Simulated assay, not measured.
Amino acid sequence: MTTTTLLLQLSDTHIREPGRLAYGRIDTAPYLAEAVASIARLPQAPDAVVVTGDLTDFGRAVEYEHLRALLAPLPMPVYLLPGNHDSREQMRTSFPDHPYLGKGGNHDFIQYSVPVGDLQLIVLDTVVPGASEGRLCSARLQWLETELARHTSRPVVIALHHPPFRTLIGHMDDIGLREGAEALEAIVARHPNVERVICGHLHRTIQVRFGGTIAATVPSPAHQVRLDLAPDAASAWMLEPPGFALHALPRGGRLVSHIAASGRHPGPFPFHDGGQLID
């Protein structure tokens, strides 16, 4: 029987303390609660969930406490990584039972590598404290090189917050990955077992060819960045349908990524009735 590894990706949850609105307009908590309920309704349970940054809005202890409660119904391992709205120190304090977050160190980066079924999830830290844009310095990239060398026989998914490519949404590219994208692409190109580079930050589905594989962002479970490719487009968000990604790796096969809308929707309904196409 074929075994398929399922890695579910959430991103950009932007949780505030209970009762507070993000941007003065949106309560992101019910949206995350609905995404968690949608995950529970999937026909096949994911092996793990990874949340690719911007977990909270301001990196405050009370926000991470709220996030923890919202994620608590998930029965599978949940892996967190920081975005530009997060605090590495507070993440470690608020999630002491997540040892992969580390204890700080010379560079204080949150970078780790964990097995998820038949694939290896490798997480990179792109955060520049106090800044919206991201960076991958030589120390972070050297760690990636070393980790990839340890897993040449396993399919790999690399996760980071800031996408290492231009999205053509100008105001988001202005706060994108400012340093290290070309070096990252060169590293990925040398490792054909990298099945996907998965990112957050953009609050919508965007895909690009990258280093011989695909790099992609995913929707937020709450609000989405407005799709406007004008170079001078205003920074704005929309209440488009929220969602998440499900990355599926069949044993011996290639990674297949699905984007799903969270929430309850009519169906499923059969295409056929008793073997006959319904007229």
Rank of each mutant, 00 (worst) to 15 (best):
H107G: 08
R190S: 13
P219C: 04
E17Y: 00
L42Q: 09
H247G: 12
L81C: 09
R166F: 03
F269W: 10
R68F: 00
L277W: 13
A48D: 09
L277V: 15
V225Q: 06
A35Y: 02
N193V: 08
Y100V: 06
V208N: 02
H203D: 09
L202Q: 11
G134I: 02
F95G: 03
S11I: 09
E65R: 12
I214W: 01
I39Q: 03
V114M: 13
S113R: 13
H98K: 15
H223P: 00
G104H: 01
H201E: 10
Y100F: 15
L101C: 07
A149M: 14
K103D: 13
S87R: 08
I214K: 02
A72G: 05
Q224Y: 05
V62S: 15
R196F: 07
G274C: 04
T52Y: 03
F271T: 15
R209P: 00
P163G: 07
F58V: 00
H66P: 00
L55W: 06
R16K: 14
H14W: 00
Y112E: 11
I278C: 11
A233Y: 07
G275D: 08
H162E: 00
L67S: 02
N193S: 04
G134V: 02
D12T: 01
H151I: 12
I169L: 14
A72T: 08
Q142N: 15
R196Y: 08
M76I: 09
G105D: 12
R264M: 02
P268V: 01
P163H: 14
D12F: 01
T5A: 07
L7P: 04
V36T: 04
A189H: 14
L184E: 01
S235R: 10
G200W: 07
